[in-house]
């Protein structure tokens, strides 16, 4: 048994996303004119061994996101925990 954690890190809504804007411009130029917004984020998968409880996994994942994976100045994050 192991835990699989999927972490999504995205820029906060009020933070400008030059990369997303560039992708959107490219898409519009390629003819995908119905695309009206693009935000680019990061996706990370974490594996935990099965000795932790679900609550502890969530607690640690939250810490990991706050301390390393996301920059709390500009990014927000969410994650899901699955048993594997």
């Amino acid at each position: 048994m192991a835990w699989h954690v999927s972490v999504y890190v995205t820029l906060k809504p009020s933070v400008m996303d030059p990369q997303g804007a560039t992708v959107q411009r490219a898409l519009n130029q390629m003819g995908y004119t119905h695309v009206t917004g693009v935000r680019v984020g990061k996706f990370t998968e974490l594996e935990f061994d099965g000795s932790l409880s679900e609550m502890d996994v969530k607690k640690q994942a939250d810490e990991i996101c706050d301390k390393l994976l996301a920059n709390p100045n500009t990014e927000s994050y969410r994650f899901t925990v699955e048993k594997k």
Partner: peptide, 12 residues
């Protein structure tokens, strides 16, 4: 007060 953060876009 983190809303003060501005993101740079040098290409712009």
């Amino acid at each position: 007060k983190r809303s003060a953060v501005q993101v740079a876009d040098p290409f712009m």
